[in-house]
Write a protein that binds this DNA or RNA. Structure first.
Lengths: 107, 107
DNA sequence: ACAGTGTATGTCGGATTAGACATATTGTCA
DNA sequence: TGACAATATGTCTAATCCGACATACACTGT
């Protein structure tokens, strides 16, 4: 139902566990948050693989270190949109994105 | 490089063809736009499969008919974020989303 | 303990995106 | 053709998100 509202969740602390039980999250909400965490995790992996610091990655995608940190933390102020654009900027293909998103978690 | 800026593309007219040549789109930009179009298309398919009108779907996801129309048209004012939330609201699983995103187009 | 490097967190102003409304367009049926 | 439903398009205001900055925290090496 409420697909749109309440994205202000913060996703802090529970890096792997399920979202659903901690807060009163609906199915879509928890799927949304898990998806976001998976993307966040992949971003960090890709960055480390390239041996880049957050500041360097920030420069690469025309953003700031703090935003990169927030992306990787799946912060509530970060959209899936931004995560996807950043992954694409790091050279992820659409099939690769698909794999990341499909996985039922712990990338 | 410029992952962030210029999303104001409208994606009008070229329902399937490649984005890249029409405008001066970078690799990530065209991947982004194609991705969006694939999601848009899937949303429409899912809606029709359920025999819902845009107005009904709008109600379901707490949005408006006009926004649904724009989503399905992959309008520039629509984010991938919103498309994903809508698909989740229509019951798409993460693996299903993954498949949609992975496909190299004409889903 | 201090300096240096990298990451996290809080906040702010400005940019983008959202839902809503009005209106136009398209399609179907009588 | 006219009436009606469905979808598309344009524009507004409000909410959300983004980059930036400041600053805090964590970890090394000395």
């Amino acid at each position: 139902m409420n697909a749109t509202k309440r994205k202000r969740l913060k996703a802090k602390g529970w890096r792997f566990g399920d979202a659903k039980e901690l807060l009163g999250l609906s199915d879509e909400e928890s799927k949304y948050v898990e998806l976001k965490m998976r993307l966040a995790e992949s971003l960090r992996k890709k960055r480390l693989k390239r041996r880049l610091g957050q500041t360097e990655l920030a420069k690469l995608i025309e953003s700031s270190q703090s935003r990169v940190a927030k992306m990787e933390a799946a912060d509530g102020s970060v959209s899936i949109d931004l995560l996807i654009r950043s992954l694409l900027a790091l050279g992820a293909s659409n099939p690769e994105l698909g794999r990341i998103i499909a996985r039922t978690h712990r990338g």
